[in-house]
Design a protein around this nucleic acid. Structure first.
Lengths: 204, 204
DNA sequence: GTCTATACGGTGATAGAC
DNA sequence: GTCTATCACCGTATAGAC
């Protein structure tokens, strides 16, 4: 049945996503993915020839979540720099709240094989010039050199991502292992980080 | 010979450190560690019963690099907040420049097994109250609530660490794969991040 | 398409000679 | 202490029945 086939494929991908994101390529086991998908191990290979192929599928999909139209947002000529910062921060943190293991997954796997990123950039028709134009536009708005604007971008991204990647550490040391408190902290960051960034600018 | 024995042990630890930090527990192979140490695989087990034991050795050692006397620095009553921030940022970034894969290693392995951190904290006689006092002290200096001071700490740490953890991504997208340029950027951050943080405060 | 059974290679770990 | 040889197991992948 065409319908059931499609469903199985999705079931496998969902399971693979779950396992790969938490364990990474090296730590994941095909058996665990099969169990999670409630199917047999052999079926994994029937649908996706190999573990690597299956992983590649998930990786490309997940890194796609990380590159939304954020560059376009930064480049947008209709927004004030405050609006850009607020939208960027809020959108990014929302993505990570909905995909809390995405940052660690990407850090781990990009470190293991940086070529994965290159392939994604080619696949998605990524253009480095778009980024450069966005940076230059931002630098004019912020009254900075392009290099300073780039640094500002990196600071903004750091502040959005690190609390997710470093959660096990921060939660235990600075939040006494209180998960709920940490979730509130992350939620509040949608606003707090934007304010923090803007206040750093107003003093220039 | 006692001398040679000691040397072998160190050679093994050096090799294990190198391999584990780059590949993680799951990705590392005992054979690769043996090759790197220029000894036989069996010798690894002779010195350190198992892969897990050897890894634990390295992990505890590496996470120790991450918790220097920074808490003491923040708590120190003799320094102005500007001095604290400058010293903290500069010291931390220096550590990471000398151990560029440490952040990714810790993120990866703490995510895999958060219990490792608990064990380290016990081993090192870590006291959560020391941290809390440091935060409260900082909050008074900065004219903030303790919660705001904690957030500020997290921002400071984020800005120090993320450019190392996210290097593969940032270097390719924002630095056109220019390693040397990226190294300069990291070096400059010792000063830039401190200034950035201080300017965000002066506007309060 | 989905299953069971199995092949095959690799990996951590041990035995035993020197 | 250090080596070679080998074991036992596990994980990916395939063969083949249904």
């Amino acid at each position: 049945m065409k319908e059931l086939q499609k469903e199985t494929e999705i079931q496998i991908l969902d399971a693979a996503r779950k396992v790969f994101i938490r364990k990474g390529l090296d730590g994941a086991r095909m058996q665990e993915i099969a169990d999670e998908a409630k199917i047999n191990k052999a079926l994994l290979h029937y649908y996706f020839r190999s573990k690597d192929k299956l992983f590649e599928m998930i990786f490309q999909e997940e890194i796609g979540k990380f590159f939304p139209k954020m560059v376009g947002l930064i480049a947008s000529p209709d927004l004030s720099f405050e609006e850009k910062i607020k939208a960027f921060v809020s959108n990014y943190i929302s993505i990570f709240i909905n995909n809390p293991f995405l940052p660690t997954f990407l850090i781990r796997e990009l470190h293991r094989d940086p070529e994965n990123l290159k392939q994604f950039l080619v696949n998605s028709g990524f253009d480095i010039n778009t980024v450069n134009f966005a940076i230059i536009g931002l630098s004019k708005q912020l009254n900075m050199t392009p290099e300073e604007a780039r640094n500002f971008m990196i600071n903004m991204i750091s502040l959005c991502i690190f609390p997710f990647a470093g959660r096990p550490l921060i939660e235990k040391i600075l939040f006494a292992d209180d998960k709920e408190e940490y979730n509130k902290f992350l939620e509040n960051r949608k606003i707090n980080v934007a304010e923090f960034l803007i206040s750093s600018l107003n003093n220039k």
